[in-house]
Design a protein around this nucleic acid. Sequence first.
RNA 1: GCGGAGUUGCCGGAGUGGUCAAACGGGGUAGGUUUAGGACCUAUUGGCUUAGUGCCUACAAAGGUUCGAAUCCUUUACUCCGCACCA
Length: 823
Amino acid sequence: MDFDFKKIEQKWQKRWENKKIFQVKESKKKKFYVLEMFPYPSASGLHMGHALNYTIGDIYVRFKRMQGFNVLYPMGFDALGLPAENAAIKAGEHPKPFTEKAIKNYVKQMKLIGLSYDWSKTLSTMDPEYYKWNQFWFLKFLEADLVYRKKAPVNWCPKCKTVLANEQVQKGVCWRHEDTEVEIKHLDQWYLKTTKYADELLDKVDGLEWPQKIKSMQKNWIGKSHGTEILFEIEGKKWPIFTTRPDTLFGVTFMVISAQHSELMSLVTEKQKKEVEKFLKKLKSTSEKDIEELEKEGVFTGSYARNPINGEEIPIWAGNFVVADYGSGMVMAVPGHDQRDFDFASKYKINIKEVIKQEAKPIASLSKNQTKGGNVKEKAYIQEGVLVNSKEFNGIKNDKAKEKITEFLKKKKLGKKVIQYKLRDWGFSRQRYWGTPIPIINCGSCGLVPVPEKDLPVKLPEKVKFGKGNPLETNEKWINVKCPKCKGDATREPDTMDTFFDSSWYFLRYPDNKNSKKPFDKTLVQKWLPVDQYIGGTEHACMHLIYARFFTKVLRDLGFLDFDEPFTKLFNQGMLKGHDGEKMSKSKGNVVLPEEVSKKYGIDAARLFLVSNSSPDKDIDWSEEGIQGSFKFIKKIVNYFEEVQFEKADARIESKINKTILEITEYLENFKYNLAVIKLRELFESLPEKTSKEVLENSLKLLNPFCPHITEELWEKLGNKNFLSLEKWSKANKKKINEFFEKQDLAISKLISDINQIFKLVKNKEKIYVYVLPNEKELYDEALINKISGRKISIFAVNDKTKYDPSNMSKKTKPGRPAIYLE
RNA sequence: GCGGAGUUGCCGGAGUGGUCAAACGGGGUAGGUUUAGGACCUAUUGGCUUAGUGCCUACAAAGGUUCGAAUCCUUUACUCCGCACCA
C-alpha cells in the first residue's frame, strides 16, 4: 500500500485548475445551473459541516457534467454584513481587509475539498462593482414606486445597534443574539413593497419542486386570510378594524388596541393616563421571552368606539396580546365566541354576549366543553351555529351571516371584504457600516433626492469610526455632498442596505459577473436561469428564499427578465454535527476541519463518508470510525487496481455493472447518495481478479463524483490521457442485466452459510456433499461455490443415479433448500 | 395551539403489502495471518433448538383491514423541527 493521497489530490486539483476544465463554455449542450447558497465568509474558515454542504452540490454537478450537460456551477461570497463588521471591530481591523482575507481562505479551502466550481464566475458582494447594482436596483424600485420611507415601529437590536426585519426577529430576540431582546423603536426606515407581491408569492409556491416543508413555511409566513374590514367610529374618526368573524359583530363588547400602537396615547383620556402609563411600564419590564407564557393583560383607555351595526358604545382597552402591525393594530373583541377575548373579558369582568347558538342537535353530539343549549360558561363557543341577539340577522347560519353582515356594512359604506397578509413590507435599511450605501441625498430644500445613475456606485468610505451611532455619519467628507438637483449643501443617507438585498439577486449576476455596463445581460440570464438546482439550508425559508422570489418577480415586471421563479428545484441539506451529536462550535470543541481530515484520510474518504451513512437531507454526526470505514474502502479499491489483470469480462460482472449503472444514476438524480454508495460498495466488492478495462473504467466513472481525485488517478493508471471528470457518464446496457446471477449469488451464500453452521455443530468432518433439485442444478454451480466458499464441495442433482449419498440425505432436498451431507 | 417530519437490531440507517430476522456501514465476538500491536482476510452477531432448511419473539404501543403487514387504516405515546396571542 503505497499511495500518497495527499499528493494525488494536489496533483489533480492543480491539473483541473491549469486546464480550466470546470470553466463553463459556449456549447450546444443543454444548460444546467446548480447553485449552493453562497456563504458569508467567516474568519474562522470552513469546517467539515460546510464541506458537507458543498460536497452534496459537487457530487451532483460532477454527475450532471458527465451526463453531458453544460453545467454552470459558480461560487461567490456574501461578504457584506453585520457579522463581518462586528468581528472586524473585535479584531481591531477594518472589515474590508478582514473579509478579503477570509474570502481568500475560503477559496483555498474549497479547492482543497475538490469542489469543481467555475472560479471565473465568482463574485463578492463587497465589490463596488457588485453593490453598485444593488444601488441601481434601489433607484429602479424607487422609480417603480416599490420603495418608500416611513416612520414605523421597528425591531431594534441594541447589540447589533440596528433595525431588524421581521424575518430576523425570532421569538422576540435577535436572530444573531439569542440573549438580546429586540426593542420596539419608532424610526424612519426604508421599505420595499413585498406585500404588493404577496398574492403571487403565495400562489406560485405550490408549483415549485421544493421540499414540502419549505413550501408550507412560506405559505404560513405570507399568511393570507380573508375577512372584513369594519369601520368603527372613535371620537369622530373612522377606524378600520379587520376581522374574520363579522358574523359576531353584535357580540362585540370591547375593543383592544395594541399596547405598541403608535397612536395609542391619542385614545387615552386624561383620567386614564396614569393607569395606561403604568401598564406600559410594566409591559416593558417583562422580558420578551416570557411573553409566551404571559397572561392577557390590559387597561382601559377611557375612550369608546361606536359599533357601526347597532350604535353601541364600546369601551376601548389597550392590550398586550394584540399585534401592532397586523390589520390596524386594533381588534374588536367578542368574548362570547373567541377564546382570547373570553379570557380577557373574564379577567376584567367585561360583559360577555352570546350571539351564536348551536343549532338543535342530539345531546350526544355536544362536545364536553359545551353545556346544553350552548350557553357560554367557561369557554367561548367557537363552533358553527345560528345567530341570536343580532336583530334582523337572527336565525341565520353564522357562515352565511359573515357575507350578509359584510354586505350590509358595504351598502352603508361602513365596511368591506378584504384580504390580509401576515407578510409585511420589508424594512431593509440598517444603521451600520458594512453594507451597500443607500443612494439617496438629503437636501434641505429638495428633500430626498436619488443619486443619479451615472454617479453610481456610491462607494463605502474607508475611514469611519465605529461605536457611536451610525458609522457612516462619522466621515464628514463622505456624508456632506452637493444636492444633485439644486447643487446646494446636502447630506448623504447614512443607512446601508440589509445584506439580504445583496443575496436577493446574486444568482442572476453569476452568468454575467463581469458586466460593468449593466447588472447583467438579459439574454445571458435568460439562457442560464432559472437555477435548475438550488441547494441550501432550511433557515432561509422565510428570508432569503422569499426575498429572492420577490426580486425575481419585480425584475420581471421591470423588464429585466422573463421568468417568474428563480429556483426550479430546491434541496435542503442536513447539518453535520459533532461526534457528540451537538452542533459544531468552537466553544464545544467538536469542530472538525477539512484540512485535518484530509491529512489523515484524504479528502476523498471524507467526501465519501459525509454522504455514506444517511440521506443528505438529514442531520448526521461526525464519526471517526465512520470515516475510517470510507478510508478502508478507498484503500481496498486502490489495492485492487494494482493487482487486477485484464481479460474479457464475464457475463456475471457485465450484468452487475450494468445494473449498478442504472441504480446509481437513479440515486444520484434524487440525492439518495447513501444508497448510491451502498451500490458502489457492492459493485467494487464483486469485481473479479480478472476483468476487462471497460468494466474497470465504468466502475471508476460511477465512483468519480464521490471521490474525484483517486478516480482520476486510477483512470490515468489504466492508460487514459484525458480527464475522467470530463468523460461521459456510462449508459447501462439493459440486455446484459441478468437476474439469474443475483438469484444464484443469493442461493449460494445461503448454502454456504448453512454449511458453515453445520461445521460449527459437528467436528471432524471434511467432505461436503450437497443434493439439489434437478432444475436448480444450474443455480448451484459447483465451481462457483467452491471458489466462493474456499471449500471442496460436491454438488449432485437428486435424480443423479451415480451420486454419493450413503445416509440418503438427498431425500430431504426441497425447492431452494439443498440437502447437505458431511463426512 | 397550528403545521411538518419521524419512532426499525448494540449504533447509524435501508426497506413502504408476500422474495424480511431485515440491505450497507459502524461496533462486538470467534478464527486466520502477523514477533506483538496495527492493518488485512474469513466467519458470526434476536432467542431457543438442531447435522443446518425448525420453533418463538421482533420493526414505538394497542386495535383493525387482508389469505398475508415493518409496510395500509384508526387511536395512543414519545422525539425532532417550523410558526405562534395574525383577531
